[in-house]
């Protein structure tokens, strides 16, 4: 539905953003690929050379790597499950005619404005701290031993913190979608004899499909790179218990100062991200098209 000149103009106008993103993607990626086959340690800058796949093999032979891989997927999966489930429930609750709905939204949206280092430090110090945290105070109030969140359940704690940060996003998208559902549809279902659960299952949930898709897509993009929360709280520990792939790469680059290995890890992370992206786009692309 267009003329040749407008198609030409269109190509011209898409060009800058495509070119910029191509450079932004390819240049660092090519450099990372190059370093990943090199010996490059900041501590011994004289020894350099090609090392083939050694940097990659180091990762695959490290037990930490498989744990980190698992942790990365657990973080993404865990946060998605928690935020989508809670998001649906909270959206259903807020969508009811409750008093002060506008102010409720302001409260619920707040965590979204909190930058990750601050969020992590609030939770670490004010809540999860074994001596001074609010949780330990509550536990002691009940006469129980305080739970050592970051020591005993580091991964769960990180998942919890990140879920808190992303819950507003999920809730508000789902709430917006819910509000666009026509009440006539629900009333028709009620006339057809559908109970509350059946209405949720057959009317509300299908209506939310698109919104849930958007939540999963956007959150996955951000969750795959989660770094600051772990850096601030557990530093990947204890041991490697809460080390994710990004954090493991970070440790190689900053602590071990082994740029070659960090680069190999980076390439592995990019491949992982592409695998996730592939399945995500394949599974969800359909929902977005309509």
């Amino acid at each position: 539905m267009s003329t040749q000149s407008s198609r030409f103009a269109a190509r011209l106008m898409v060009a800058p953003s495509v070119a910029l993103l191509l450079i932004w993607m390819i240049v660092p990626l090519a450099m990372t690929l190059y370093y990943s086959f090199r010996l490059y340690r900041l501590l011994s800058p004289d020894r350099t050379g090609w090392v083939g796949f050694n940097n990659y093999l180091w990762f695959f032979n490290s037990p930490d790597f498989w744990l980190a891989l698992f942790n990365t997927l657990a973080l993404v999966g865990g946060v998605l499950v928690i935020t989508v489930t809670l998001g649906i429930l909270i959206a259903l609750l807020i969508d009811q005619p409750v008093k002060g709905q506008g102010f409720l939204r302001i409260l619920v949206i707040a965590p979204f404005f909190v930058m990750p280092p601050v969020a992590a430090s609030i939770w670490e110090n004010l809540f999860m701290h074994p001596q001074n945290g609010l949780f330990s105070a509550v536990a002691r109030g009940f006469g129980a031993q305080p739970i050592l969140f970051l020591e005993q359940y580091p991964m769960w704690s990180v998942i919890g913190i990140v879920s808190w940060e992303w819950l507003p996003f999920a809730t508000l998208i789902l709430l917006t979608a819910l509000q666009s559902l026509s009440s006539e549809q629900l009333e028709a279902a009620e006339m057809d004899g559908a109970g509350a659960f059946a209405r949720f299952r057959y009317i509300i949930l299908p209506h939310l499909t698109r919104a849930i898709t958007v939540v999963i897509l956007i959150q996955t993009i951000f969750l795959l790179g989660i770094f600051g929360e772990i850096f601030t709280t557990t530093q990947g520990g204890p041991g490697s218990a809460s080390t994710t792939l990004p954090y493991m790469i970070f440790k190689q680059a900053i602590a071990a100062k082994d740029i070659g290995r960090a680069a190999a890890g980076g390439i592995i992370a990019v491949i992982l991200a592409n695998i996730v992206a592939y399945f995500l786009m394949r599974g969800l692309g359909r929902n977005l098209n309509s």
């Binding site: 990626l29 990372t32 795959l224 790179g225 770094f227 990004p246 990019v270 692309g285």
Partner: peptide, 24 residues
């Protein structure tokens, strides 16, 4: 596809390209 590709560039973990970008 173009839109999806653009979005997928965001999936690249920042840490992965930290060193090259720092050097650049």
């Amino acid at each position: 596809d173009l839109l999806m590709w653009m979005l997928s560039t965001k999936m690249m973990p920042a840490v992965a390209v930290m060193v090259p970008l720092y050097l650049i």
